[in-house]
Design a protein around this nucleic acid. Structure first.
Lengths: 341, 341
DNA sequence: AACGTTGTCGCAAACGTTTGCATAAGAATA
DNA sequence: TATTCTTATGCAAACGTTTGCGACAACGTT
């Protein structure tokens, strides 16, 4: 490849017999420069395909207009939907985005955080790896760089956090089951004290209490990895109880689908005998039979607002008070797994 | 936030009463520097958390160690799996990755290409937007920057391309149906002359010819947007034919799932009356009943090899001849939609 | 006629790093 | 002892851009 160097300010200046500074200012529409000069400079710039060396600019101004993003797992539909929102909003605002994947590995996560700040990103968007425990490194970086957390967050980190209304969403989902006449509602959740799982569990409890339904530990089931397989496994446990539940609220679509598969195997009628509600609105929720009632999480809106808050913080760094938790509204999509016409 | 400036070479030099150049060389293990000096420099550097300003370094050396990636749609499982591979391999090789989404918009794609080169990425990985027609801008950039295409490629662009063995995979899928005893095999494909669709169609034709099965235009169906809905629609068309097919090869899992849904609605037995094969190994392919036979595309391997070839080109730019098309092997996952024990 | 104002433009420094070249001291050789 | 060779270090330029300050006209105003 003929690595033809790109046009620089100096070349333009030489050709026009102007100073570099004048050319620079002309291109940046500085008021000191006469319209006539601007005109000819811009024309030549266009003709020679001038494009500022963003590296030099960033180097000089200490602003890179790059946002760093760290997520646990990029190939997860919800995550990539958030990323889509991030990319769109960032592009719209004139920022570029560097993405890294922590693979749910805490030390990798810290490593990436360091590389990114070292690299000079203007701010950081992060969704925490599971079992993130050592917060000191993160707090350390938070001193230097603006940071916004989304989805997997922690209230131990004092920065703006964008999440969905986990508790509220779970409350609505469970209350929907109650309104259907269900009285024994099981929940499939995570054992680890994951932020999301805890909030959803809280919503579940509040819905039961508010409707004066007794809480039964026997139908509150937890698992380390809230996957399809474990959803099936836990459901089989529920079916072996003397008093079976009449509804299952799974903290995750995958677990809910696992539940449905298990119910099929044991010829349990959905939703008549046992209704099922999931959480995520994954593509699969419409593929499974019966179609799954689930909570729709607007991933792109999470991404967009995260970027919006981060850029606000970048562009006026003084606003120290502005730390807050933003909750994005979700909605319950009622489908066949919890509804009969 | 207290924007405490980061440590620089100058600060280290001052504190040690050494020159900046000595400090720089010491940290880079330059042979001119005595082991003793290296020792003390490195110690202080570690103590003061020195990290080189990559912007300054990239600015100076014109090497950013950043790869630019452009994909049509990030929230597509296959794409994000490729991205996962790209991220992993890049990180392993000491490169960072900037990702942009063209949203299948050609002018946006060109815009991003320009921004990235302007930004100074060392090379570009790209999956083409649909209907990419104006190649001149891309060719122009190809003169300046190393570039590798993957998944959605075009043989009109003279650069290394990483794809799966589309034709071979389709051939195997169709031959699998033939071996099952199927004689009238329909295909659901795309109308647009998309690279992938054309190749798969070619594999379909070759399999039929090789097995001396007549080609019937009536069961070769095309659609602009090869989606679940259109898969259903086209399948209903097939069912209304006098001579129904006994198998359907869909160019996409989504279309195949649409086909299965339509077959269910008309109470057609799968695979006894009509077998179905898809392409992609999406998550959904295991959710649908019956589980879908499909082609497994190793996305992460595509990503990894794309990065490997790109970096090779970056690190020795002379190798002009090395332009080639690399085909990643796929495998057919036989499941219930085309098999009975 | 002297002054202030306004409109254009250039000079030069600065950002942090790398690197070719010069330099100094000491070691090895003649 | 004089010379050349190492070894270890410093000087200064360069990368492309932005920007504070100063220069210099050409005005209009007293």
């Amino acid at each position: 490849m003929a690595k033809k160097r790109t046009t620089t300010l100096k070349e333009l200046a030489n050709e026009l017999k102007l100073s570099i500074s004048t050319v620079s200012r002309a291109l940046n529409d500085h008021p000191d420069i006469s319209p006539a000069t601007k005109e000819i400079v811009k024309n030549l710039a266009k003709k020679k395909h001038y494009a500022p060396n963003l590296f030099a600019r960033g180097f000089r101004s200490q602003e890179t207009h790059i946002l760093g993003v760290i997520v646990p797992n990029i190939s997860h539909l919800f995550t990539s939907t958030i990323l889509k929102g991030i990319l769109e909003e960032a592009e719209f605002r004139g920022y570029r985005v560097i993405i890294s994947e922590s693979q749910n590995n805490e030390s990798k996560q810290i490593e990436m955080l360091k590389t990114m700040t070292q690299f000079g990103v203007d701010g950081i968007l992060m969704s925490l790896a599971k079992k993130t425990a050592a917060l000191d490194a993160i707090l350390q970086i938070l001193n230097h760089k603006p940071m916004v957390l989304f989805d997997k967050v922690s209230d131990k980190i004092p920065c703006t956090q964008i999440v969905i209304d986990e508790e509220e969403a779970a409350y609505n989902a469970v209350e929907h089951l109650i309104n259907l006449g269900k009285k024994r509602i099981a929940i499939l959740k995570e054992t680890e004290n994951s932020f999301n799982s805890e909030k959803r569990y809280a919503g579940y409890l509040r819905a039961l209490r508010n409707n004066e339904i007794a809480i039964d530990e026997k139908i509150i089931l937890s698992t380390e990895d809230i996957s399809l397989k474990n959803g099936s496994r836990l459901t089989r446990m529920l079916l072996s109880l003397k008093k079976r539940p009449d509804a299952i609220f799974a903290i995750t679509d995958n677990a809910a689908i696992g539940a449905i598969k298990a119910l099929h195997k044991f010829n349990v009628k959905i939703p008549q005998e046992i209704a099922v509600v999931g959480f995520s609105n994954s593509v699969n929720s419409t593929i499974i039979q019966p179609a799954l009632t689930t909570v729709d999480q607007p991933g792109d809106r999470i991404g967009r607002t995260a970027v919006a808050y981060l850029i606000k913080e970048i562009e006026n760094p003084d606003n120290d008070e502005a730390i807050k938790t933003v909750e994005i509204k979700t909605s319950l999509l009622v489908r066949d797994s919890s509804f009969t016409a």
